[in-house]
Design a protein around this nucleic acid. Structure first.
Lengths: 335, 335
DNA sequence: TAATTTTGAGTTATCGGTAACACCCATTTT
DNA sequence: AAAATGGGTGTTACCGATAACTCAAAATTA
């Protein structure tokens, strides 16, 4: 590997002069500057960012921790984050917790050991508070994405889970549905709680009562446990519509319904949160509340970089991004 | 930040002893080992991987460079790569070139400056040869994914583009289609060339001739330029079926056809390469050649890690993974 | 012309670890 | 009893860069 010392020797200057040329600091005569530049190019010199990080105490690496890389919401978010990071000259260390607290913890350790300059953190749930406290304890700036964590004061970018849920459920009510089931994520996750609240509000605002036997609390990431759906369908008064709390759950619900010979929307209407990215465009089917995923990543990353580079330690900011209800073919009026 | 020197002082030993405890090297009495461990825990010590990397000349970071993070093929691949990397104790530095050579080059510079131990490299196309040569020049091990690069000798994981394409087109021929258009990626990309070859072979094997006016060479990533589709549809003999060379192109094709009031498969049949991941399961619609994306990432990463850790410099390996044709609703017999 | 300032460098210490070697003391061997 | 062995630990140098300081020569000023 070529170091500044190699450059220095070849150019007949000291290492410090080379360093100055690289960083455009100090005073260097145009002649030596040119000479050093030439040698650097000839030798295809690339600075060792480890060494630089060690002395500067910053790495120019940011970490993005998401909970499900197979979910288009998060990959779109990742693109937003990546674009903002790249623009500001940061590299991205990428991690995917799979909605798994243990994996999340492992990654936090990695992050700490890598001494990244900041973390864009989509937590798996409320218990992530411990991992976030690790970051706080070591003064690593972070911005929380998508899910609010009780007990953590930080910049945060959220969606309007309650409003979005209310609108979706009111859409179903408007179509005449009265028994609307909800397949929710874990109650450990703020968005799941808020979407449930929105679901309840929609009922109450329309003079309907909430029947908790119509509500199942599962996990956002997958829909392996079909017994919840079985239970719903075997109710005395089975639902005529289902609100899936996110896109992945909706996929599971629709697949399961299909296996049972039930058609959407003929037999049941289905709505959910979050769109499916480009690949969802093949057959835009689901009525859903679409969140601006790219903006989540972009704004979150911008806030993070401001935190890192800005001197003023301003108040914590909370950005709430609206969702847009898109009515498509998965819902229809109750017959 | 807490360093080994802090630990050493508190434990009444030298820094070297702390280092030995951390790495389980050398001889340490059980008593001091315990004492040092205790202090490390009390102080929540986490090693500085930058400092360690600097002296060890290795970072335990691998880089994964993909070309489209919004494509489920690559995100699934990423999960495979991540799983394999994590199992072997490596972190992943993640990069997304967006099928853009300039971005790819930027990321290669970042990779070089980060001194990663190896790169899992899905190239944008043949011109990536320069970027790969950069890695070779600096002795950074890499494995090439998905696309073969002429002039580069390396381990590589590929799909069976030719075979897959042939099967898809023969499926269409079997359904009676005779004018089959192809919307292809750039000819600068090996998979696009091979898929075209497969397309031609299917024709020739079935006594049909290839009409190159039915073939458009675009870009894998997006389908902004609709003039190619216009040209096809305005032919004297317009196609009755379209072979899109990958999933993203298929999305574009189907959207465009829909805008033009054409129905799939009633007006045209459509097939493509690569499935859509979990989100595609809502309405499994497209007949396609599904590639084992997770395996691409997993096997590629395993090979990479072997290269890095294994002493034997064995021959370059080329793994070709088969694709599976899945017949769904986007194709039907010619009326 | 002498004093002062500016310019363009070089020197040294340091970031947080680890390799290689040195060293002491308690056993064991001769 | 002297020599050899080896377990347990400390010292020193170094990885590749940069901050802070120093300093000589040139340019400017008095």
């Amino acid at each position: 590997m070529i170091t500044i010392y190699d450059i220095a020797e070849k150019a007949g200057v000291s290492a410090m002069t080379v360093s100055r040329v690289i960083n455009n600091t100090g005073r260097i005569s145009e002649a030596t500057r040119k000479r050093v530049r030439k040698v650097m190019e000839d030798l295809h010199y690339i600075p060792n960012s480890m060494a630089r990080s060690l002395v500067l105490q910053k790495t120019k690496i940011l970490s993005l921790l998401i909970t499900d890389i197979t979910n288009p919401f998060y990959t779109t978010l990742a693109r937003g984050a990546e674009d903002a990071a790249k623009r500001a000259g940061y590299r991205l260390l990428f991690a995917n917790s799979d909605e798994d607290y243990a994996k999340e913890k492992d990654y936090v350790d990695m992050i700490l050991s890598t001494r990244v300059d900041g973390v864009l953190f989509a937590p798996t749930g409320d218990h992530s508070v411990e991992n976030l406290e690790q970051l706080q304890k070591r003064n690593i700036p972070f911005v929380v994405l998508d899910r609010e964590i009780p007990g953590i004061e930080a910049d945060v970018v959220l969606g309007d889970s309650k409003e979005g849920a209310r609108k979706l459920v009111e859409h179903l009510i408007g179509l005449g549905h009265r028994r609307i089931a909800m397949i929710n994520g874990s109650q450990d996750v703020s968005t799941a709680r808020l979407r449930y609240t929105g679901y309840c509000e929609a009922h109450l605002l329309n003079g309907l009562s909430v029947d908790d036997s119509q509500v199942a609390h599962l996990n956002y990431r997958d829909f392996h446990d079909e017994s919840a759906l079985d239970a719903l369908l075997n109710l005395e008064d089975p639902p005529t519509a289902i609100f899936a709390a996110n896109n992945m759950l909706a996929v599971g619900v629709i697949q399961s319904l299909r296996l049972r010979g039930l058609q959407v929307p003929d037999d049941l209407s289905v709505v959910c949160f979050d769109d499916f990215g480009p690949s969802g465009a093949i057959s835009p089917f689901l009525t859903l509340a679409s969140q601006p995923a790219y903006q989540f990543g972009l704004l979150g990353m911008q806030m993070l970089i401001e935190r890192i580079e800005g001197e003023a330690v301003h108040e914590n900011r909370k950005i709430i991004l609206p969702s847009e209800m898109i009515i498509r073919a998965s819902t229809q009026a109750l017959k």
